[in-house]
Design a protein around this nucleic acid. Structure first.
Lengths: 202, 202, 202, 202
DNA sequence: CATGAATGAGCTTTCATTCAT
DNA sequence: CATGAATGAAAGCTCATTCAT
């Protein structure tokens, strides 16, 4: 008894719904049935668009990473000074997290257990975001175009600082008396202190 | 037919078991039935000691914070130099996280949804851990015993750096080619760069 | 929301229902939910009495084997002549299959896939039925109490003849124009022809 | 958007695939989707060639009976001695069963429930296999070409012995310490003892 | 303080099947 | 002749929770 109303927009609708539920109520509340109910199809239909639940989650992550990538890209467009580029990258990263909570949480809070089958290609793509940082860091050190491993390492540390700040905020572990903005600002500042001092390049 | 096994200490036994399961097999494996089986009582009995599963989780989190607290306390015992105290605090924090992976995740990353009913009193207690940092920071600034808000803020930023590094690692988001130890080391180093320079106090 | 009406007779009720469904509609129609519906409990309740579906099936088989065992035992009670004992065993076996179709099909038609975890102890018990045959065969050969491997082999062959006849009948593969009784009679006769000729013992 | 892959021979391809799946992985693995995937069409397409799954199964059974028929036919080709013909038939039958385990089960053990709609005509065809036996039996009795009902009955009994032996083996109900080959050999021997003694015809 | 029996809702996934195209 | 999208039913099983005893 299949009424075929070819709902071409089902896939994005599923992703939207999943993202919202994930943010609002966490992974445990995310079930295929629930998504189906919310978008108005049967659970079975979801399996026409995604191999399984993990596949759906991977699609979510992919989407999120793409958006983040784009936003970071735009943020440094036309900025020449490498130090300022770094700062812009940091602030843009925070903005993305705050304004796209849904995406951010999906990307970073999913348990590794569910990432086992995450396609290698996407992992590589994800690392692209860190290259932005690494390259800018190399530039700060006066080695534009000559990115070293240590730059990549530094990029990770900066990232960790940003991610830590953001996720403590998003999971509501911060002392409520704290000014969130000051906190994030300070975090960026400290992240940037990881940059090589500009004197090095002289 | 209630054979009263005089198990006066059931509550701590439940928590012990729950913690072990959590550390060893993660959140997904933590079910009331399973805890009951492992501890040698029925699932029903658990409800005599905990209102519901969230309540148990809250107790676990509380316990975890206490343990972390203790570990941090011990780590700085007898260390006079405030800078070294800070470093010890950082390293001790990382150790705790790495040795209690899944436990750490529950404590610091559990979705806010599950924390709705978490008692205010415990939140306050949790902040105690940050006071350690804040006080050491004040000491670094030559204001031992005179902790300011900005010290507290700085403590949060340091915490964010540590938490960010740890959770990127635990959720396996790091580039696999990276040396985890170098990364964590660098993160600590950068966290500490948030400390006021010792020159300030002159 | 558990109304505890302690239905002490649930376990046998489940087994009864399962047996009936199995015979009437085959394994594919046998589901936990269906059994539950029929006996008036929830599917979950079944799991209080049986570890899982296979466990339930094993219980069915066990029950069936016990009954068959008993019936065979009774059938030869007081019969001295070994040849007549054999015949009685054969006929009793057929009777059991025809009169307890439910049990018989359960015992022998379940796919090996589901038998993987069947407890060794029960297998041993099952072989007991064949010992009846083997011992009688030994007796026919004038070696009462001195059962040899070849007797055991012969017992298996006799069993195969009986089982083949019965199952072709039960699965309705026989030509409908055939007289079932003659067929079974003939099968018994042929089974017994596997017995050592009485002359041997002279 | 129907790209008409001129797959005129889809029906046999489906049957081939179904048979292979059946032999290799058993009934449980036999789903419409799976067949479709393997054969390179959609599940829907199967329904153009078969009313439903049972219909497909019936076709498989038919096919199986035909193959068995052919194999039996070949096995006695050129054999004159009626006794030897019988033996060859028996052994050929066993070979077929052992080499097509799961296939054999579907043909001869599928629950009657699934056979409700099995066309009468095919049943008649199936009986053809038994005629082989019956005719050889008549020949043994020196009545070649004059097949009697009793021969047909005897054929059934022989069949029952073979089927019983095979299915006890296939469903793994035999004592594992038993030599399967000896057992089957003995079963054939006993099946053949159902033949009229050659002396009778004098 | 503790239990045993039971519940209902929920889970992911698979299946045979149907419809408009 | 074939498809892609969709369906509803069902599967086995686990979970947190409750109630009478």
């Amino acid at each position: 008894m299949a009424r075929a109303k070819p709902n071409k927009e089902l896939r994005p609708a599923i992703l939207d719904e999943a993202r919202q539920t994930l943010v609002a109520e966490g992974y445990r509340a995310l079930s295929m049935r629930r998504i189906a109910r919310a978008v108005g199809c049967t659970a079975t239909s979801i399996y026409l668009h995604f191999r399984d639940k993990d596949d759906l989650l991977h699609a979510l992550i992919h989407e999120g990473l793409e958006r983040l990538h784009e936003q970071l890209l735009v943020s440094i467009d036309g900025i020449e000074d490498p130090r300022r580029r770094c700062e812009r990258l940091c602030r843009s990263y925070l903005e993305f997290a705050l304004e796209n909570r849904e995406y951010y949480e999906v990307i970073f809070s999913l348990h590794p257990e569910h990432m086992k089958r995450y396609p290698q290609a996407l992992y590589r793509r994800a690392r692209g975001n860190l290259e932005f940082f690494a390259e800018s860091i190399a530039a700060v050190a006066g080695r534009a175009g000559d990115r070293k491993d240590s730059d990549y390492l530094q990029a990770h540390v900066i990232w960790a600082q940003l991610h830590g700040a953001v996720s403590l905020h998003l999971t509501e572990r911060l002392d409520f008396r704290l000014s969130v903005l000051s906190f994030l600002d300070y975090a960026v500042q400290n992240a940037l202190s990881a940059l090589p001092s500009t004197d090095d390049q002289k």
